[in-house]
């Protein structure tokens, strides 16, 4: 019995090391936060579009699964994911909508002229209110919303090709099928 007490420290350390190993497992990123909005209805929004008089609103988008991408012209990582977004819209024909976060229309327009416009429609969230309602904590962020208007998935930071192929596209296929 007395000897067991002396074993306690090494056993506790074993447990600790196990947790550390879990935290180091591949594919796990402790920095990424899960969205608090998963499986909740997307917040209501009604934004003026970047071009023309159209409106980008939640109600107008319900009915089919869509992808909403928060971006800004001042955001460097957004440029990194831009080619992927182009691929999503032009090759995969994904319904991709943009929300331009805390940005000036002319700057956003310049960016899109330069790199191409992957979005079906872009809403201007000049004050960042919609971003706040979505729980955006840094652009770019990408949300998958199902046909009933629920948020199903969030990607923080620039999308990677693996994320698109292994997570985003399968999820969209599944949502379209159901």
């Amino acid at each position: 019995m007395r000897r067991l007490i002396y074993l306690l420290p090494v056993l506790l350390f074993g447990v600790l090391a196990g947790y550390f190993a879990l935290a180091l497992r591949p594919g796990y990123d402790p920095q990424t936060l899960p969205s608090a909005m998963i499986d909740k209805p997307a917040p209501d929004f009604d934004l003026a579009a970047l071009q023309g008089d159209a409106k980008l609103s939640r109600d107008g988008l319900i009915g089919k699964p869509i992808v909403v991408n928060f971006f800004a012209s001042w955001c460097v990582p957004c440029r990194i994911e831009h080619p992927l977004l182009m691929r999503l819209s032009q090759q995969e024909h994904i319904p991709l909508y943009g929300i331009d976060y805390k940005d000036k229309p002319e700057d956003a327009q310049r960016l899109l002229t330069q790199l191409g416009d992957p979005y079906r429609l872009i809403g201007m969230d000049r004050e960042g209110h919609v971003g706040l309602d979505f729980g955006v904590y840094g652009v770019p962020e990408t949300y998958v919303i199902d046909k009933t208007g629920r948020i199903r998935k969030r990607f923080v930071g620039p999308l990677s090709a693996e994320q698109v192929d292994q997570e985003l596209l399968p999820l969209l296929r599944q949502l379209s099928a159901s």
Binding site: R3, Y6, L7, P9, V10, F13, G14, A17, F20, A21
Partner: peptide
């Protein structure tokens, strides 16, 4: 983590054996 296992795990094991 491997260093921790060797250094801490090793010394605490030695402790469990010798300290009593």
């Amino acid at each position: 983590l491997l260093l921790l296992l060797v250094a801490i795990g090793g010394s605490l094991t030695l402790y469990a054996v010798r300290a009593p």
